[in-house]
């Protein structure tokens, strides 16, 4: 091969290597400013990055003004203020949330997250539960479905990767077997659209999500039956027990001074299920 071609290849390879190094360099640079290093009290205020699912109203979502908002965000902001931490938000990809937590993209996952035993087993530090979530059935007004028993032979939708899906595939396998079909959707909007468009007969979904949707859109009702009880908590990286304890004590203080209840007033759909207030 001629020298010129080799030279060109080498130059390009070096260019690529530089790109990679620049990437790594930037990554290392980011490491030095990662939050754990500044936990010592008298240093610069600790930066606390809250990992949220930006598609999970009313806990965390994009508000009408285009900014991230929601119950969990309001509470976390208050916690950071109380602790003197610098608050920041990182919208996770829900499927990869634990990878993103592990790799320090955020310092907690706090976004209507169901506490699973598997998370504890994997070593993640989980806070005390703060919300009782139940799985409910959402149907259209005038539907002949009144309870889970009526779902036999029907088509039911559930969102992929939610606790509702897990419930149907594990504890409630027998119920699922009675369905004509179980459709898994990529997001809640898709579940509801399937229902609205008569592609499915019912949606199994988190209670607060169902209630918010039914209250904002005409023609839907939430059945009273609770399919499965579960609780929401905050996940931290393994080894971050101290941070978890700090957050929990701050929550206690906010509950005690009434700030927590005040925040909850803005979210009537979920107020009834907040453990600290009931």
């Amino acid at each position: 091969m001629s020298k010129k071609i080799i030279a060109i290849i080498l130059a390009a390879a070096i260019g690529l290597a530089c790109l990679c190094l620049a990437g790594c360099g930037a990554k290392q640079g980011a490491e030095t400013t990662a939050p754990e290093e500044s936990t010592s009290e008298n240093a610069v205020p600790m930066r606390f990055v809250m990992g949220i699912d930006a598609e999970y109203p009313p806990f965390s979502e994009i508000g009408a003004d285009g900014k991230y908002t929601g119950f969990d965000i309001d509470v976390c902001k208050a916690v950071c203020e109380y602790l003197g931490w610098e608050f920041d938000i990182f919208p996770v990809n829900w499927d990869n949330k634990l990878i993103q937590l592990d790799s320090h993209e955020c310092d907690c996952v706090w976004s209507g997250m169901t506490i699973l035993d598997s998370m504890k087993e994997a070593g993640y530090v989980i806070s005390r539960p703060y919300f009782d979530n139940t799985q409910v059935i959402l149907v259209k007004d005038g539907s002949d479905i009144a309870s889970s028993a009526d779902l036999a032979g029907k088509t039911v939708a559930v969102m992929l990767g939610t606790s509702g899906e897990k419930l149907l595939n594990e504890e409630l396998q027998d119920l699922t077997a009675s369905f004509k079909e179980l459709t898994t959707c990529d997001n809640f909007l898709q579940c509801f659209t399937e229902l609205d468009g008569n592609a499915v007969d019912a949606v199994i979904v988190d209670k607060p999500v169902a209630e918010k949707y039914a209250s904002e859109n005409k023609g839907f009702k939430v059945l009273d039956e609770n399919l499965g009880e579960e609780q929401y908590g905050i996940a931290f990286r393994s080894g971050d027990e101290a941070i978890c304890a700090q957050v929990e004590s701050a929550l206690d203080a906010l509950v005690a001074d009434g700030t927590y209840a005040k925040i909850a007033e803005n979210y009537p759909d979920i107020q009834g299920n907040l453990i600290f207030l009931n």
Binding site: E55, P57, E61, I62, P91, E105, N187, F188, F192, Y213
Partner: peptide, 17 residues
Amino acid sequence: SYQEMFTIGKQIANSQT
């Protein structure tokens, strides 16, 4: 979680149904 257009679009869609 790179906040490109479609990611944001999805977030808005699901937040605002």
